[in-house]
Amino acid sequence: MARKDLRSEWRGRELLPALATFVVLALLIANFAFDLNGASVPRLAPGILWLVLVFVGLVAFGRSFAGEKDRGSLEAMLLTPAPAGALFAGKAAAAGLVLLATEAVLLLGMALFFGAPLSAAIVAISVAASLGIAALGSLFAALAAQTRAKELLLPVLVLPLWLPFVVLGGRALQEAFAGQAVSPEPSLLLLDLGVLFWIAAVLAARFVLDD
């Protein structure tokens, strides 16, 4: 399932270039909105990173299920003997990988444009946070795609639940960008939460995808 989504993304090359452009544009806007300079970058960079990441996530996860719903292929997939949980896990994994790819663009862009530091800790924290973000994002994207409101409902539902990741990750990134030693606890907690939400989301998928 994940392979199919990634292949169709690779063939279509729709989402990733659009998201990458979105990331660069968001960074440009942040630059003008905050009037960034060398002194303010360490303080503002984590905030900008999370804002951009959250909004990119909304687009990426929204697309992943809205497309299937529009084409009516979701029903077709549900007719196959594969369990709904497995279908969901595959789609969520693919959407998560797209998010990770966008994150790479984001981190590189921040390093290039803002001179923000790029360290293993920063990458580790954002990857750890993406795990849970992907699970919850995909679950609620699948849910929102079935309602009349569609895209409108996804941010309302998922943003409050993403907050713990932003709080934990934001605190950790603040340290990392300031060049302080980063304790591994926040990242481990993010990983734990991520695994927990993956299990919960896969279990709940049966009820969300059921038609």
Partner: peptide
């Protein structure tokens, strides 16, 4: 909002239930 925007019946109730639990 989920209850409002989902089609009433089984769909609204099960989608809302997932949101309520999470």
């Amino acid at each position: 909002l989920v209850r409002k925007f989902a089609s009433p019946g089984w769909q609204a109730s099960r989608l809302a239930a997932v949101v309520g639990i999470f």
